[in-house]
C-alpha cells in the first residue's frame, strides 16, 4: 500500500486523535440513543441495547482484556442513566470479554450476519445476568421490592427476546461504519513494510 508509506508522523498523530474522538463520539451517540424511542426502535415496549452493540463492534477485533475494560466502563455509564441495581457492569464486562474471545476465524466469519448473531447471543446473556441479579437478591434478602421469581423470569423472556431481535437488526448500523473506520485506521497506522 502506498498510503501507509507516505503518512508522516504528524499525520499519524492527527489520525490517533481523530480515532479517539470517533470512539468517544460514537459511544456517546449510542448512550444518547438509549432514552429515545423512535419508530422502529421499540418491540413490546423494549428498546435495543445500543451500548451492547457498540461494545460488540469494539470487542470483535480486540483482546479479551480490552473488551472487558470497555464493557465495565460502558456498564458504569449505563448504570448512571438508570439505577445502581441491577447493575449493567457485570453483563457488559462479560459480553466484552466473550466477544473478544470468540475465535472468529475458526467458528464464524466476520460479516454482518455473524455480527448480528453475536449481538443476538450477547444480548440474551446480558439480560440473563440482569435477571440473575434480581433473583439472587430475592434469595439473599427477604425484603426484595421486586415481584416474585417466576414473574422475573417471565419478564426476562419478553425483554431478552425482543431486545435481542431488535439489537441484532440494528447492529450493522453501528458495526459497519466503525469497522470501516478501524480498518482504514489500521492501514494508516501500520508500520511501513520496507
Amino acid at each position: 500500500m502506498t498510503i501507509s508509506r507516505s503518512v508522516s508522523l504528524g499525520q499519524r498523530r492527527r489520525y490517533r486523535w481523530i480515532n479517539i474522538g470517533l470512539v468517544m463520539g460514537s459511544a456517546l451517540l449510542c448512550t444518547l440513543l438509549l432514552p429515545m424511542r423512535l419508530p422502529g426502535m421499540v418491540l413490546f415496549g423494549v428498546a435495543p441495547s445500543w451500548l451492547l452493540m457498540w461494545l460488540v463492534a469494539w470487542s470483535v477485533q480486540r483482546s479479551g482484556v480490552e473488551g472487558a475494560i470497555v464493557g465495565f466502563i460502558l456498564g458504569l455509564v449505563h448504570d448512571g442513566l438508570t439505577g445502581y441495581f441491577p447493575t449493567h457492569t457485570l453483563g457488559l464486562t462479560l459480553v466484552g470479554f466473550l466477544t473478544a474471545r470468540i475465535q472468529k476465524q475458526r467458528f464464524i466469519q466476520e460479516d454482518f450476519v455473524s455480527v448480528a448473531i453475536i449481538v443476538f447471543g450477547m444480548t440474551v446473556i446480558a439480560q440473563t445476568i440482569m435477571a440473575l441479579q434480581i433473583t439472587a437478591y430475592h434469595l439473599v434478602s427477604s425484603t426484595s421490592p421486586y415481584p416474585g421469581v417466576p414473574a422475573i423470569w417471565l419478564q426476562h423472556q419478553r425483554i431478552a427476546l425482543s431486545s435481542a431481535i431488535l439489537s441484532s437488526l440494528w447492529a450493522p448500523a453501528i458495526y459497519y461504519p466503525l469497522s470501516r473506520w478501524w480498518a482504514h485506521y489500521e492501514q494508516i497506522m501500520a508500520p511501513p513494510s520496507n
Binding site: L32, I69, F72, I73, L76, V77, G80, L81
Partner: peptide, 23 residues
Amino acid sequence: VVLVMIAALSMRDSGGAVIYEMY
C-alpha cells in the same frame, strides 16, 4: 483508560446528569 473510567464513575454518581443535559 484511567481517565475514561474516572469520567464514567463520576457520571454514574451524578445519575447521568451530563448525558441527560446533552440529550
